[in-house]
Design a binder for these strands. Sequence first.
DNA 1: CGGCATCCCGTTGGATACTG
DNA 2: CAGTATCCAACGGGATGCCG
Lengths: 125, 125
Amino acid sequence: MSETNISVPLAPLPPRSCKGLTDVLASVGDKWTIRVVGELARGSLRYNELQRRVGGISQRMLTLTLKRLEVDGIVTRTLFPSVPPRVDYELTELGQTLRAALLPLSQWAAKNRQAIEANRERAGK
Amino acid sequence: MSETNISVPLAPLPPRSCKGLTDVLASVGDKWTIRVVGELARGSLRYNELQRRVGGISQRMLTLTLKRLEVDGIVTRTLFPSVPPRVDYELTELGQTLRAALLPLSQWAAKNRQAIEANRERAGK
DNA sequence: CGGCATCCCGTTGGATACTG
DNA sequence: CAGTATCCAACGGGATGCCG
């Protein structure tokens, strides 16, 4: 616990602040969070619509993911007390900055995924 | 397998290419990979030195992590057949580009971690 | 020194059923 | 519609011991 030193990362991936990054990635780098944030990037969505768009996520995981994002201040949850009930999820400003910070990695992934798979192929044999 | 559509992400977190991102994060966003890449960012390191620097990683996890990074073409493994043996790990050019792509997220984490923890505090009570 | 093999337990997360 | 609750299988990952 005495190891929560996080100076601002000016140097390339400063080792001391890496623990902060690890924490964030533990929260953001799981199987579903990125997908959810990505779908919410373009605007608010209802629970079911979100589940449909993400594709493959279980109710349990969607709920847990959204709850954590809400607690972290990444998304807002808006309940319309109608019948049937309606709940909208939307990125907060913090969420938007996260999405922006994710972009370079997204581009890197798109650009290098095939190269990585080719590497795996070669190494695998 | 018919869903490997990855157009270049020009739009903010393009949903269709998000699966590529998810794959990459599944590979890169685990508990240790970022830390290892971060430590290797400044130059090559030996196995034990790497384990010491990362701190808290078990031999098993360090070995598995390095193996996957090697297979993916992110790091190189160089064996010096001396006695006792010596093995150096180093980022490849691809690894360097990954590190660069990780920087914005690293900065976001450093900048917003406290805010997130404050949010959790409020929401938790 | 730099690993690999094995055991084992805690967590993750899917499937299913139920509720306001 | 938008969840909650429970069960259970799969996986991650630490500890330990052995080897070239």
